[in-house]
Write a protein that binds this DNA or RNA. Structure first.
Lengths: 254, 254
DNA sequence: TGAAAATTGTGGAAATTCCAACAATTGCAT
DNA sequence: ATGCAATTGTTGGAATTTCCACAATTTTCA
């Protein structure tokens, strides 16, 4: 009965898709074969790259393709990562950190998770919370509010009221547009939360790539005097740079 | 040095994101602690839903929405959908609706998005918020709190305090176990939020499939007298049914 | 500061797994 | 039918893990 082996193999794989791990003894009992047989099955499937052994059992092989997360975040990813690294350098001494929403903020969150510890991150972005959450040495506090589907973050009165009652060392915000008037967001609801965040942090770091320079179709959520640091990936236009200087905003080009 | 434990925990999780499995002895050697300590770490992380044990080691917990779980969920998907439909029928007149977390709750959320309007949904689950959020006629309110990676939902004191200040017509909760004592959840943090939710709603609907019957390895978050309706997909065992009756819990078998 | 609680280490017995060599069985081709 | 190759079972000892109770240490808090 050569067929029985194949059958066992598929049964093993099936069992493995229902549970995160299986045990030699368990399967031997279940299939009515000896543990050695199961062991040999495992060896074979391991050679075939379908599973990987553990002491006493086996687990599903992790897809070599899905290994690192699929970064389909377009060409700007490298720039955003550079910006994020520089941003986190800037706030490395924080104990309480406010982070806004947006693609850049998520990159910052990844950096925070990878490099910081003993810190509390407060955010209204689902993506940021999830990104920081992988590090269990970092406490992630979610801000309440109305769910905003387009941004997957919370907004509105509850969010703002909640923010009134806390303090942070830094706030890190992205922007959908950066002009001489200040950073802004296309969505007024988000802008309002950003403003509230800024009022609760000792220092404010704005992170935005060069594509945001002089995009004004947005609601300004802060004035430059309130901003401590502006992190970007290319030298800003002359007028903008001048404005930053005159408002004593620290400029970081990553 | 209490910090060292948390540090170990994250290191374990980190190691687990790089490899499909880790071993007790290996980590003990690597961290310079005894195997018993690692074992205890595993126990704790298991309780927290972060990993699952194997003989001699541990593997990453299949988080909801991931590969293996998807397959197992698809087996129960039809049942969950039936349960969800019946549940939403039951609460169709709600204006403010509390929804908990878990796979069943997400199905309920989908039904709510598909069929209800002019209603406010309050939840602490990211997945539920996202599911309901597709319908722009439904307001989704997110509960604040500490982010719980395993469940992708918020927990802790902030969540509970927030709940104290609101009122809802119904609360819909899933359960990881349903016994004669009442519904329960494996994670104490989640159970605490569920309890808080129940105290704020006029009526309480518990939705759980038959696989949850008489699973007691969990923290009970409510007593039957507090429950208005129990929705499931098969007739419960006799004793459980009797308990429901004597507590005047409406039983719906979808 | 002192007591209670939490964390970690230790030691030994019991259970489990691993490994390798060998025997038994089965399928299949000649 | 015979023989070969593949598959599976068995066995025994070595290695590993688990479990439990208890001690040592550290942390917390009144």
């Amino acid at each position: 009965m050569r067929q029985e082996k194949r059958e066992r193999h598929t049964k093993i794989l099936t069992a493995l898709s229902g549970a995160s791990s299986v045990r030699v003894a368990e399967l031997a009992r279940q299939f009515g074969v000896s543990t050695e047989t199961i062991r040999r099955d495992f060896d074979e499937l391991t050679r075939g790259g379908q599973l990987s052994r553990t002491y006493g059992g086996a687990v599903r092989m992790l897809d070599p393709g899905h290994h690192g997360e699929v970064e389909r975040q377009s060409l700007l990813l490298a720039e955003r990562q550079r910006i994020a690294k520089a941003t986190v350098d800037e706030v490395a001494d924080a104990r309480i950190l406010l982070i806004g929403c947006g693609a850049t903020a998520v990159q910052v969150a990844r950096q925070v998770a990878a490099r910081l510890k003993d810190i509390t991150v407060v955010t209204h972005s689902f993506a940021v919370a999830a990104a920081v959450g992988v590090n269990h040495l970092v406490e992630v506090m979610m801000i309440p509010g109305l769910y905003h589907p387009a941004k997957a973050s919370t907004t509105g009165g509850h969010a703002i009221v909640f923010l009134q009652s806390l303090y942070a060392d830094y706030v890190i915000l992205g922007a959908s547009g950066v002009t001489q008037d200040g950073p802004g967001d296309t969505l007024p609801e988000i802008a309002a939360v950003n403003t509230a965040m800024m009022s609760r942090a000792a220092r404010c770091v704005i992170a935005a790539d060069q594509s945001k320079f002089n995009l004004s179709s947005s609601t300004r959520y802060a004035d430059w005097p309130q901003v401590s640091t502006f992190v970007t990936d290319a030298a800003p236009p002359a007028e903008l740079r001048k404005t930053l200087e005159s408002n004593r905003v620290k400029l970081l080009v990553a």
